[in-house]
Amino acid sequence: MRYAYFPGCSASATGVAFTLSANYVGNRIGLELVEIPDWCCCGTSAALVTNADLALALPARSLALAERMDPALDVATPCAGCYSSLAAAVHHARQSEANRAHVEELIEMPYAATADVFSFLEVMAQPESREAIAAALTTSLNGLKVASYYGCALVRPQRIAHFDDAEDPQSMDDLMRLAGAEPVEWSFKVECCGASHQISEPRAARQLIERIFEDAAANGAEAIATACPLCMLNLDMREAEINKARAAAGKAAFSIPIYYFTELLGTALGGSAKQLGIDRHFWPAASTVAMPRREVSAR
């Protein structure tokens, strides 16, 4: 299990807990990540809404650098947004020779588009990883009720993101089950968190987050698991603010911690809240994962 590693801009910033927990799990299961030298921002939705060529050229530059480093390696990235941009660029370049040549012109580098792109969710969901996780488990999440939240970019559009079902994906649910959690059935696993509109259109977009919490709570979730740093930030950083608005409207507050799926896997592999970055959340998340672990050891 060796990949060219595209960390993405959030990996050392808002998504630092994803990096810590993914590295922890990766080390435990023998995942080898070789960082792409001088990778750049994937452009994400800002490039997409600005210019079609920009949305291809930015991810293609990093993909070409990965090829230059080792053409035999596929590319893996933790971030759902980066995954979407990178995979779309590969898809485009493979559509025709003219497309590929145009991308090469834009990036001033050779680019053969031979490597595939994987999200960390897909990497961890592969049979080899699952076996390694199962073998390395030291504890159980002991029936913690988890709502697996996939969001948009890992399942749509299907021509690019097709490793799981677009409406009812299961890969994260299966990993949660493997870690001893109990995935809940809920309706919002592929709904949008509002992405950057939480900054540019906060008044209109906040209800997207609130609806996700509402559905998770209505289905008995004690925790939400995500595979995207922006979904994480939007839910985790804004839960308290949403609760404040709900209190003013006479509605019950939510009390649901959000985790990167790798934090929950890492917990079951024996990682501490500090090692996994769980102590860095906005909504307190350390005690929820600590409790079931105590119960397991007491059994």
């Binding site: 939705s45 997409l48 809404v49 948009c152 399942v155 749509r156 559009p157 299907q158 677009a166 409406e167 592929v190 709904e191 949008c192 509002g194 992405a195 509109h197 259109e201 209109a204 977009a205 997207l208």
Partner: peptide, 11 residues
């Protein structure tokens, strides 16, 4: 401009 590009419509 309000579209969040979640692609539910296309899917």
């Amino acid at each position: 401009w309000i579209c969040a590009n979640c692609m539910v419509c296309s899917a």
